Computed example of a mutant assay.
Amino acid sequence: MKLSLHGVSVWYSNAVTQVRLARDAGFDGLEILPEHLYRYLENGGSYAQFRALLAENNIEITCINALKRIGRHQPEERAALIKEAERICHAAAELNCPVVQIMALTELDSLPEAQRNAILRDNIREIADIGKPLGIKFQIEVVAFTAFNSLQQGLDMIAAVDRDNVGLVVDFWHLHAGGNTRPEEVAKMDVNLIYGIHFCDGRAARPGETWDEWVQRDYAPGQGEVDIPAWLDAVKQTGYTGGWCPELLSPHHWEWDLADIAKSCIDSLHEYGIK
């Protein structure tokens, strides 16, 4: 079982610092954000240097998170999406990273469900085909505040895409806050479709409240409304033995010392028996 530091947990840091933070806190890996990686590369860093840094610190890149707005479908926007997919797949291959996260946001929410699903199916197929020759898998994250927000929708999409390198990340907050998935559904999943776990807490938007992740996710594990033991038990029932990544999207915690943030993330896993 591999434990990875999530780049969003240490939002106000750079890629090099994140490697050290992961090592010092006791993580095996780093789930890196493309914006942090690209900023490093655009300001004098190289893939070779970053690979050497990872090896020196015994840290793996377990996921690049994320290729966003995968529902772009107007010709120019879709061309930009495919170009981004090629870039992020190249980065994953350079860093021996096995998984890239993909996610739709609200770009399709105004469309009928059948049209939305057809666009996502076709886009994910093309993205999957870009990564396949490079040995890259893609984990779909269903997003709480969109129309594509349930586990069943994700599973149906995987079946429609019909590619063997597409699976799901089980994100406790998104599945809880989306309101359309129960832990029992996770427990019944084919474990081979689970590419990662995002261990996190928070709450759904309240009646009349605008969705804002920096508000609804500003909670450490155990402080929000997610029934973490229930989701943990559900994952365990699948037989899952892969990686775990605590995701602390929390403006409050971002103002802590970076080392304390990283330590609190791995401690939260240990507190719930994930080691």
Rank of each mutant, 00 (worst) to 15 (best):
L95Q: 05
T210F: 09
W256S: 10
A187Y: 09
R125S: 05
W211Q: 11
A93K: 12
A187R: 06
V226Y: 00
D218F: 02
Q49A: 13
P75H: 01
P75V: 00
E84Q: 13
I197S: 03
T181A: 01
G202K: 00
S9E: 09
T106G: 12
N149H: 08
G7T: 06
H73N: 10
A259S: 14
E209C: 00
S4G: 08
V19W: 01
L155F: 08
R20C: 06
N165T: 05
A220N: 15
A159K: 11
W214V: 15
E113C: 01
H90S: 13
E213T: 15
P183K: 01
P34L: 01
A259Q: 14
I228M: 03
A118T: 11
P112W: 01
L5T: 08
S250I: 05
D267C: 05
G154C: 03
M1S: 11
K68W: 13
G202P: 11
R125P: 11
C245D: 11
R23K: 06
T17Y: 05
F172C: 05
Y219K: 03
W173I: 09
D28W: 00
T241K: 09
T106V: 14
Y40K: 03
F145L: 15
N14L: 07
P34C: 01
R87M: 12
P34D: 09
W244K: 04
D24V: 08
H73Q: 08
L175D: 06
Y272M: 12
R20S: 12
R39D: 15
E35Y: 15
A55N: 14
C245R: 05
A22Y: 00
L269H: 03
L53W: 04
A114Q: 14
F199Y: 10
A262V: 10
K275H: 15
V166W: 02
Y12N: 15
R69M: 13
V166R: 00
W231L: 04
A79Y: 11
A177W: 07
N14T: 12
A52K: 14
Q223V: 12
V143G: 10
W11L: 14
L37E: 08
Q223I: 13
D109K: 04
W256C: 10
G208P: 10
E56D: 13
I158M: 03
R39H: 11
E77A: 07
E94I: 12
W214L: 14
P34H: 04
G208Y: 02
A128I: 08
D171Y: 02
E225W: 05
K263V: 12
